[in-house]
């Protein structure tokens, strides 16, 4: 299997050609070693940090912004977003408070990115 990817390790943006044969993955067209690492990861298990908002009960604001503590596998993103859009948070909330713990056993939490006093 061969996939074309754009490396995002630096602004140059090398157009990588990543090929998987059995257990062996080869990365081509990369100008530096970071491209090789990126290409392999992106092919095997692409992950993204997700940011979103949850509804919040407060006079000051309607939505509280949140983020995953680490990048999560892309196949979990839509399920996570739907969960977050439904989850009503109540004030007070502090920046870093856990909103959703260990989502689908990924070991990844969702935390508030804003403080909202009572």
């Amino acid at each position: 299997m061969t996939k074309e990817l754009i490396c995002i390790s630096c602004p140059i943006g090398c157009h990588l050609e990543v090929t998987q044969k059995g257990d062996e993955i080869t990365v081509r067209n990369n100008k530096c070693s970071r491209g090789e690492i990126y290409g392999k990861e992106e092919l095997l298990a692409p992950k993204r940090v997700v940011t979103a908002t949850c509804p919040v009960k407060s006079d000051l604001m309607l939505r509280i912004p949140v983020k995953t503590t680490e990048a999560i596998p892309v196949e979990l993103i839509n399920r996570l977003l739907e969960e977050l859009y439904k989850r009503e948070v109540s004030a007070p909330v502090r920046r870093g408070d856990i909103i959703l713990e260990n989502f689908m056993d990924s070991g990844i939490d969702v935390v508030s990115t804003k403080t909202l006093s009572g």
Binding site: T53, R63, N78, R79, L81, E82, Y85, K86
Partner: peptide, 8 residues
């Protein structure tokens, strides 16, 4: 509203 669309 945000959340009204199904993403799954």
């Amino acid at each position: 509203k945000v959340g009204d669309y199904a993403l799954e």
